[in-house]
Design a protein around this nucleic acid. Structure first.
Lengths: 188, 188
DNA sequence: TGGAGAAGTCAACGTGTGTTGATTTTAATA
DNA sequence: TATTAAAATCAACACACGTTGACTTCTCCA
């Protein structure tokens, strides 16, 4: 075995910790998630988490990241941008239900670090994307409105689990909310 | 002094505890708010909080209530329902910045009791209001969409404090988001 | 004014938390 | 197989939390 392969054991527990931490942080948010919960789920000792990641904070920091992976909107048919954005957003969410965005949204309301991270996602990813369509004029406000609708949708459907939004079919949401986003993005 | 007035002393600390608790719960959410924080802010002993309210949970329960005070929507010009709803919602929010809705929204993402309370607000207050306009057909879904936009707006403007939404003028928001709500409520 | 009940103070308890250091076990090399 | 470093275990720490009960102070009426 060469050196790279030899580390496979510790890599595995490292991965187990990350997977468990993602699930627990996503389910309960930062404050309510405990190192011991994560350890149980990963079937390891709580001390290992500190050993591998330094502290609960550092582990959270490592997982509280999110890449929207916005496509090039200037390449999309400009009448379809709204629906395309909602569709993309829903996919991003459902693909990685335990991933960054869930963790951030669950924690941001009571955790300033997570809130700041979410604001950064807005400034670095949403803003530029919106500005690339319909020009820079009023892009910040348009991006803000877009975010309010998309985050609100995620909050209600995935976090609060408001019955009608949970039940509602993906395509209905895309059609309805798509119209809203379309108007926000293009200014009608 | 009669009996009612004699209790004025304890009523005052009772009120101080409530005010302090509203502020702390609204600022940090249930998990992060501590009995000791509330006590410091109310300038009283932590033990008094337990003495007066039984437990942190009971105090929270007492404050985690919200009355949307929706006006009779069937009396509003049906072309103005969207704007009227947003205006009403913003007023409700800004009037009592430390009150029920803030507390609920700050806590609901990581506190199942608060989430349940928010769902109850939806079922008991938003749903009936929306159903009273445009009929019962699809009322649940329409109400869900309305909630996603309004809660998303509150989340971004008051909790996450996304810069453009914080800066944006009240009337611009009412105009822009009003159109969205109008379409959701009336089904276009 | 003295006594009784309310209001407030104080120190401490038990519990759950993140974290640490010493120790034991495991696994790869010589 | 013996050796050595990595990996995992364990018990315990320090701290913050909600909560309790005994005690003191205040306040008002007889």
């Amino acid at each position: 075995m060469n050196k790279a392969e030899r580390q496979t054991k510790s890599d595995r527990t490292r991965a187990a910790i990350i997977a468990a931490a993602q699930a627990v942080f996503a389910a309960h948010g930062y404050e309510r998630a405990t190192v011991r919960d994560i350890a149980v789920r990963a079937a390891i000792d709580p001390a290992m988490i500190i050993r591998y990641f330094g502290s609960k904070d550092e582990l959270f920091t490592r997982l509280a990241v999110f890449d929207l992976k916005l496509p090039d909107l200037s390449a999309v048919d400009s009448n379809q941008i709204g629906e395309a954005l909602v569709r993309h957003f829903l996919s991003q969410w459902e693909d990685g239900a335990n991933s960054g965005l869930t963790i951030l949204l669950r924690s941001a309301a009571s955790n300033e670090y997570a809130a700041e991270k979410l604001r950064a996602v807005f400034v670095e990813q949403v803003m530029p994307g919106i500005a690339s369509v319909g020009g820079r004029a009023g892009a910040a406000e348009r991006a803000g409105l877009v975010s309010s609708q998309l985050l609100g949708l995620a909050l209600c459907r995935y976090v609060l689990k408001l019955p009608p939004l949970v039940t509602m079919h993906r395509e209905s949401i895309i059609k309805q909310v798509g119209k809203t986003i379309q108007r926000y993005v293009t200014g009608r």
